[in-house]
Design a binder for these strands. Structure first.
Lengths: 187, 187
DNA sequence: GTCTATACCGAGATAGAC
DNA sequence: GTCTATCTCGGTATAGAC
């Protein structure tokens, strides 16, 4: 798994997707960055759809791993803070990235159905995890909730997606913290 | 102002921007829909940047008008519901649109700085309006707030943007109501 | 598995007739 | 103000040598 070309291609594709979106980059961009020709990329990923699907799957798997790394014995508001921290890291060193699946959700109307399904799965995974935290927050009193944990989780995940977008727009990382602040129960 | 070609072009451009994003449509798409040639579009809007800037300005003006139409003597939660209603309408008959400025925020890294400034203004306008509602909600007891109305407004607006995105992704309009439900003070 | 070379198309944009 | 015609570039994708 050292660093074969295929992995580099996939990594660059993910980075470009997060920065510029599906129609905002080309095989040439990846080729230039990785140091191969565009035809080599087509060898590994025949079509752009193949490339994007592979990027989504790997991205989802990585986020799933991050979620599992968050200690579920922590207070709910602390778990949420960890989650927000991961969301912030994903913006990259230059701060020019947003969530890969948030980006693809923006482009969804010009993408094949297979991508929509994969992105929906990513959303559901996050919402499910957040619903569990909201429920715990209602019990341990660290988060406010409306009583409907699933609905709260959808609103919460939307807030993270929207605030990451705004963070990049304003070049200010602080906007992600607004979400945790807004959902924390006043002590 | 009946329906000159220029207005039709602008309307189609806005619609295509909301559906497919900046790189997801072409002068040809607009030309086909309006019934003119692409060169006619270039006459009215020399570059694509001109076209997008005009679309943003008009869209912002329309949203500003909608905000002014919401009765400020209503209870805060009712004002928020009206706001959510407008957000939902914008998705269009086919439900394939998201907020024009939310879409451009996704594409922002491949757009000229002028667009970034215009989109930032749109975000600020909405956040300012929402901050006033959150403040009122703290007074009339219909909305929950953290004490920092500006931060709450940023989180709230992010939630609307993110939930509109998710609504389209899942083809379900219900997801926008989740935001109002989550912010309403339990009675 | 990577290369060179190329096919093919669609993009934004412009010149100039009407 | 709209048209025809055309330019130039960059996009995805493929064939075939190495």
């Amino acid at each position: 798994m050292a660093n074969p070309v295929r992995d580099q291609i996939l990594e660059q594709a993910a980075s470009l997707l997060m920065t510029r979106g599906y129609h905002g980059f080309s095989y040439r961009d990846i080729a230039a960055e990785v140091g191969v020709k565009t035809s080599s990329i087509h060898y590994h990923f025949p079509t752009k759809e193949d490339l994007v699907m592979a990027a989504v799957e790997e991205y989802s798997a990585e986020v799933a791993r991050n979620l599992r790394m968050i200690d579920t014995t922590l207070a709910a508001d602390m778990q949420l803070q960890r989650y927000a921290h991961h969301f912030g890291l994903m913006r990259g060193a230059a701060g020019d990235r947003i969530c890969l699946c948030g980006m693809l959700a923006s482009d969804i109307e010009s993408l094949p159905e297979s991508v929509r399904v994969a992105v929906q799965s990513f959303f559901k995974m996050n919402e499910q995890w957040l619903a569990a935290v909201v429920e715990r927050g209602a019990r341990d009193g660290t988060l406010r909730g409306s009583g409907d944990a699933e609905a709260d989780a959808r609103a919460l995940f939307g807030a993270f997606q929207g605030c990451v977008l705004a963070s990049r727009l304003f070049r200010s990382s602080a906007r992600i913290d607004d979400v945790v602040r807004a959902w924390r129960q006043a002590q």
